[in-house]
Design a protein around this nucleic acid. Structure first.
Lengths: 152, 152, 152, 152
DNA sequence: TTTT
DNA sequence: TTTT
């Protein structure tokens, strides 16, 4: 059973951060992905895809993006349903993100990075759990290779 | 802007085929994808993901699958919304499939194929054996819905 | 930076299991993925894609598949190069698998499962490291929060 | 049978455009995708993934990118092999791109677009503004290679 | 150097 | 109930 989604688009607004009782971070957001084709009126429409991200990744995403940020995300499609206050069942489809990448150029971020940077959505971060975030970029050098070093 | 989904799972029921006024086939179905982890009760849950497929691919998918068929699909996540009879806006997220693959072993299908077979969801693909397709629906079926009536 | 691959195909032969000095399992295999189109001679060709899988997942894959097994895999494309015995540089492109799914029907496996089953390729298995495999299906509880605690 | 790849990374150099005898464009390029993790020396490495794109998409990609451009691509993993001059068989793995997206901000391109733009790798897409494309290569370039000479 |  |  395979369930994999990859999206590149822009955040429709800031990531909403929340914490579970056990202290786990959860971020929810919507990513607008422009369609590759235009509609009958010649307009380019977008899909507005809801997504959630858990743990450290939620905090990272919230800290390094804002409304309009261009991001790439990977995850799985999740469906769930619940009964609302009116007693009717509501069906939800959303993407559970487990990895994301900031695709904004340097100037659009805080200037501390020189290119897109990846963040795992779920683990392998060595900051303490649920602490205010340290800068994941500190010390994180990037490629500095020349053409001559390229194997082709 | 990238929007790509890959799913492998089982059809929850037969594909529902419909035709637009212009004669274009549209198939709608739900694919159940078991999650890789179990819930608090130790049960394995599934995501039930709604999907649509257009054109010849819709007919092929309908013709070569049944409830429970194991299929792989590729497509994009689409969101749309409409106003229902009660005047409230309904938001829909579904996968628009543009390629699929039958993953059932030979015996589980009708015997006309010996391995997983691919079908494009959008172009003019033939039957698995590259025979001109014997389409039982063309002409012989009511074409009584409009594009506007289609729920996608 | 996003790098994601999803493949469904058949193993060209059994997974080759090896262990690093530190005892970490590594499995290498080739997956044959039939193309969706035929060549000029009307033949259906395949891509033979090399892959590696690390850790417990390598052992699981090796244990539950054989030559010809239909599998789905997810991973990333990795390139690397090395100097061979003749002193020429060899360039390698392969898929590093971090998740896989057995797509064979029950009878083709050992009978303990009734449907495709997922295995993580790299982590989150709660058996001791590098021990002969326990049954990956036993137990394995997961997150323990309720829907009410969820922020959506 | 499913074979799908999504990559976001930077072009290691300009796209190399060639034309078959029949006039079909073929572009070859390498995309550098930074890994999400660092190696033992704490350096962030990259995968250098070879890719090809056919038809109008090849021309579009060549026209709207340069060395270092950030792009997203979708495609399939292809393997092929040929005998080199020394009579030894060479095995090649590359991505055949059928869709791409420019992820550079406006200023990084030539100013004719205001956001990431999608181009199909296979169909007849126009320029980003839906203007008939001003293709400087059509007719004006040597068409002096055969399909057989193309390395893919 | 390949799967069904 | 939306991004550029």
């Amino acid at each position: 059973m395979i369930n994999r989604v990859v999206l590149v688009g822009r955040l429709t607004k800031e990531v909403e951060l929340r914490y579970t009782q056990s202290g786990k971070a959860a971020g929810s957001f919507t990513i607008a992905v422009n369609r590759q084709f235009t509609n009958q009126q010649g307009e380019r429409e977008a899909d507005f895809i809801n997504a959630v991200i858990w743990g450290k990744g939620a905090e990272n995403l919230a800290n390094f993006t804002h409304k309009g940020s261009l991001v790439g995300v990977e995850g799985r499609v999740q469906t769930r349903n619940y009964e609302n206050q009116q007693g009717t069942r509501v069906y939800v489809t959303e993407v559970v993100v487990d990895n994301f990448s900031l695709l904004e150029p340097k100037s659009a971020n805080d200037g501390r990075q020189s290119q897109p940077v990846n963040h795992s959505g779920q683990n392998n971060f060595n900051t303490p759990n649920n602490q205010p975030m340290n800068d994941p970029f500190t010390g994180g050098r990037d490629i500095d290779i020349t053409d001559e070093q390229l194997p082709f």
